[in-house]
């Protein structure tokens, strides 16, 4: 943008650059990068949250165990109300998805850290995992009866083929919007913080205005981080319900 050190230097997207961890010249698909590092930290954080929280297995739960039980109960309740009782079989994978997204969002809020969920490559992998497994599950459970999901029997017969095309397209739109929503939300807020930080850099004494704004955006980002993990999980439950009960 501008000359280094002088004037307004806004580089909001620099924080999303993927760089090799050990200074390799080339970035190949197997190169350990900062994405690898922060995903690994996320996995460790999820494991630590559950293992340390439930380690004492107290009859009367302490603070940590209480929190773990709260999260567990929250997600279990969500699966049961949204997808039905027979979806509880899939509760472990849904809790895993929720915790992974939640903690990678929250770890990404630590200054100087890297937000893995701001990359569409990451969120699309998660969304495609859900999409492919839910589709396979639907065909496995209902064979060709799963296609009833696209055949709206409530509509008049001549309209049904047209509606079926639209329904099939809606089905394929879902993983796209599922992944874009999470990545877009995470990226937008982080980029905005960087833009305000650049203003703070040049304003000198008046810098407190952008700093106050950054604090406010940070609080909003904390909310967004939690809500997006929730939204991703609840949509996973909705798709799971469609696979288990395809007839409308």
């Amino acid at each position: 943008m501008a000359a280094e050190g002088q004037g307004l230097v806004v580089k909001p997207m620099d924080q999303f650059v993927i760089s090799p961890l050990f200074g390799e010249a080339q970035l190949l698909w197997y190169t350990p990068s900062n994405v690898t590092l922060w995903m690994f930290l996320t996995v460790i954080a999820v494991a630590a949250f559950f293992l340390l929280g439930t380690m004492r297995r107290a009859e009367v739960p302490g603070r940590g165990q209480m929190f773990v039980e709260l999260v567990y109960g929250f997600v279990r309740n969500m699966v049961e109300t949204v997808a039905g009782r027979d979806a509880l079989k899939f509760f472990p994978i849904i809790l895993t998805i929720f915790m992974f997204i939640l903690l990678s969002n929250l770890l990404g809020l630590i200054p100087m850290s890297f937000t893995t969920t701001s990359h569409i490559a990451v969120t699309a992998t998660l969304a495609l995992t859900v999409f492919v497994s839910v589709t396979l599950l639907g065909f496995y459970k209902h064979r060709l009866g799963f296609l009833k999901l696209f055949w709206i029997s409530a509509a008049p017969l001549p309209l049904r083929p047209v509606l079926a095309v639209i329904e099939v397209m809606s089905y394929f739109v879902r993983p796209v919007s599922h992944s874009i929503r999470l990545a877009g939300n995470m990226m937008a807020g982080h980029a905005m913080i960087k833009v305000f930080a650049a203003f703070a850099g040049i304003l000198g004494f008046g810098a407190f205005v952008p700093i106050v704004a950054i604090s406010a955006i940070y609080a909003l980002e904390l909310l967004v981080a939690i809500i997006q993990a929730y939204v991703f999980t609840i949509l996973t439950c909705v798709y799971l319900r469609d696979a288990l009960h395809p007839s409308h």
């Binding site: 095309v165 639209i166 329904e167 397209m169 809606s170 739109v173 919007s177």
Partner: peptide, 9 residues
């Protein structure tokens, strides 16, 4: 058709 699918969703 994609627009219709979006409206449907």
């Amino acid at each position: 058709l994609g627009f219709a699918a979006g409206v449907n969703l």
